[in-house]
Design a protein around this nucleic acid. Structure first.
Lengths: 232, 232
DNA sequence: CGACTGATTGACTGCCCTCAAATAGGGTGG
DNA sequence: CCACCCTATTTGAGGGCAGTCAATCAGTCG
């Protein structure tokens, strides 16, 4: 009998959504999912479409996003390995995804059918409770984003986004933190235009705080970047 | 034996948070709360303070809000009778309120201690599920607010806020919808300054779409207001 | 070597904020 | 009933941040 590909033993990190459950229960829950590959840049769930699946990022990276009626793309939170998304599927009344999700890297995702995961949640109400806890993180993020949007200028917002990315998805490379992100992604995350983003990044590069490559940024010193923005 | 002041029989409207529970269960849950009066303009829960209570608006009106580090007040969703708030108290790990709530009218509120409501939720997991459903409404609101903030101009945002208020808390008075709200509250809801709000309201009044009184606005025709903004 | 996507830069514009000062509504106390 | 005060609101002048548009430049991958 082969070992399961996805089980409690394979969890490299804490999956907050499964916190408080026994290993055997986790195996049971994971066994009810199927795994799915999404190439980079593919949209995994679509805003306003029926929330028929709950998903767990196993390997890769993604982010929530939506488009405004005017066609502007807005990037929300990042989704990292161990994060669940599409949790709207857990509410008993059939409903719709609140935002879209897009793979940023090639990703492996566990997928549960709505009916299946609702059934499991009724059996293990801890899943409801954990989901609720996770929504509080999302609200915290959203309130911070809202505050940023109404009280910070473009430069501050961009620096904040870049520092957040450096901390979360940056990789240390020879004295720099390398962040794989385009100006456009930064701009859409900070809610500014790519033109404005480019101007500010150039000015930081002139100051020697960062180095810019095509499609990536090397942050020399997050602290100096922070101070430079706070100072102005 | 006196009838309880707060019980299933006293629920004038659907309390979404209690959906799917039996009347006897609802009585049990309501009996575990105490009622509390808050005068208008009093702050009921404070952002970042321990989330020790879950609350249910019984009678009155309130809104969520927070203040930015720069001291700017941001008004979020309204709280109407039948709405629960401070639901952060339901997560098992002790946590903190994500936003502040302020009574706008004199209000009567049911209050549960955190430990008590967690205990009840474990007994009736439907409460978790209902809370989860309610959070989806909040997210929907927040995504709409975010979209509005990044893709609409001040005039559109203000009109949107005013139309929302007219629909939700407006009262029909001799051909007008009377909305009890100051320019400053409108401005803080639309994330503009009270000066800008005043200018726009004046222009709408000149056009005859609304009438302005001290501390209130009479909307003549929501449809015309909507069109006037959409047209520009 | 094209072709394509990402990034840069300048010039211009306009929305909305800021600050200052005046005006007016509504309640209160004498 | 009137004078007074506090708060809500109005209005003008001025300025700056960041968006828009257009054109160019630069990596990267067939």
């Amino acid at each position: 009998m082969a070992a399961p590909r996805f089980g409690a033993a394979q969890l490299h990190r804490n999956v907050e959504w499964l916190h408080g459950l026994q290993a055997s229960e986790i195996d049971l829950i994971l066994a009810a999912a199927r795994s799915c590959r999404f190439p980079a840049k593919s949209v995994m769930t679509f805003q306003r479409e029926p929330a028929d699946f709950l998903l767990l990022m196993w390997e890769g990276r993604a982010h929530y996003f939506f488009e405004t009626p005017t066609g502007k793309k807005v990037i929300l939170m990042w989704i990292r390995p161990g994060d669940v998304f599409g949790a709207t599927a857990l509410v008993s009344a059939p409903s719709f995804y609140l935002a879209s999700t897009e793979a940023v890297r090639d990703s492996i995702v566990l997928v549960w059918d709505r009916s299946k995961i609702c059934e499991l949640a009724c059996r293990f109400p801890q899943l409801f409770e954990n989901t609720l806890l996770i929504t509080t993180h999302y609200f915290r993020w959203y309130i911070a984003a809202h505050a940023s949007l109404v009280s910070q200028n473009a430069r501050e917002r961009l620096a904040h986004v870049l520092l957040g990315l450096a901390e979360n998805i940056g990789e240390k490379v020879s004295g720099f933190i390398e962040v794989d992100v385009t100006n456009e992604e930064l701009a859409n995350s900070a809610n500014i235009t790519a033109y404005t983003a480019s101007r500010m990044i150039s000015s930081w590069e002139r100051d020697g705080v960062i180095r810019k490559k095509r499609g990536k940024i090397l942050v020399r010193s997050p602290k100096r970047l922070f101070l430079r923005v706070a100072g102005h």
